[in-house]
Amino acid sequence: MLIDGACHCGNIRFALAWNGEADSIAARACDCSFCIKHGGVWTAQAGASLRLRLREPDRVSRYAFGTHTADFLVCARCGAVPAVVSRIDERLYAVVNVNAFENIEPASIQRAPSSLDGESERARLARRQRNWIGEVEIVEGA
Rank of each mutant, 00 (worst) to 15 (best):
residue 34 F to S: 02
residue 85 V to P: 02
residue 86 S to M: 08
residue 117 D to R: 13
residue 67 T to L: 14
residue 74 V to R: 15
residue 111 R to Y: 01
residue 85 V to G: 01
residue 100 A to V: 01
residue 18 W to A: 01
residue 11 N to Q: 07
residue 69 T to S: 12
residue 116 L to F: 14
residue 71 D to V: 01
residue 12 I to R: 04
residue 125 L to C: 06
residue 56 E to Y: 03
residue 8 H to W: 08
residue 76 A to S: 15
residue 116 L to A: 12
residue 10 G to M: 11
residue 112 A to L: 06
residue 58 D to I: 02
residue 122 R to F: 08
residue 135 E to H: 12
residue 32 C to S: 08
residue 133 I to S: 02
residue 76 A to D: 15
residue 47 G to E: 14
residue 27 A to R: 06
residue 5 G to L: 06
residue 25 I to H: 00
residue 9 C to M: 11
residue 126 A to R: 13
residue 125 L to E: 09
residue 66 G to N: 14
residue 121 E to H: 06
residue 85 V to N: 05
residue 31 D to P: 02
residue 78 C to V: 11
residue 21 E to D: 14
residue 94 A to S: 14
residue 45 Q to C: 05
residue 117 D to Q: 13
residue 138 I to S: 05
residue 96 V to F: 06
residue 88 I to T: 10
residue 123 A to N: 14
residue 85 V to I: 15
residue 13 R to T: 14
residue 14 F to V: 01
residue 142 A to M: 03
residue 89 D to C: 03
residue 49 S to Y: 03
residue 90 E to Y: 05
residue 46 A to M: 01
residue 79 G to H: 07
residue 25 I to K: 01
residue 121 E to S: 09
residue 102 E to A: 10
residue 3 I to K: 06
residue 113 P to M: 07
residue 93 Y to P: 05
residue 11 N to P: 07
residue 28 R to F: 10
residue 13 R to F: 00
residue 5 G to T: 04
residue 30 C to W: 06
residue 114 S to H: 13
residue 35 C to Q: 06
residue 110 Q to G: 02
residue 108 S to Y: 08
residue 57 P to V: 12
residue 105 E to H: 07
residue 66 G to I: 01
residue 25 I to D: 01
residue 92 L to I: 10
residue 6 A to T: 08
residue 136 V to N: 05
residue 116 L to D: 11
residue 129 Q to Y: 03
residue 25 I to E: 01
residue 107 A to N: 05
residue 132 W to L: 01
residue 19 N to K: 12
residue 122 R to D: 15
residue 8 H to F: 12
residue 34 F to M: 12
residue 132 W to A: 13
residue 103 N to P: 08
residue 136 V to P: 05
residue 64 A to D: 09
residue 98 V to F: 06
residue 51 R to S: 07
residue 70 A to W: 00
residue 102 E to Q: 15
residue 94 A to V: 07
residue 9 C to P: 08
residue 133 I to M: 04
residue 7 C to I: 09
residue 50 L to Q: 02
residue 113 P to T: 12
residue 51 R to Y: 00
residue 79 G to N: 11
residue 34 F to E: 04
residue 111 R to I: 15
residue 135 E to F: 00
residue 120 S to G: 11
residue 67 T to H: 13
residue 41 V to E: 08
residue 46 A to E: 12
residue 117 D to M: 09
residue 14 F to K: 04
residue 23 D to Q: 11
residue 47 G to Y: 05
residue 35 C to A: 04
residue 30 C to L: 10
residue 78 C to L: 06
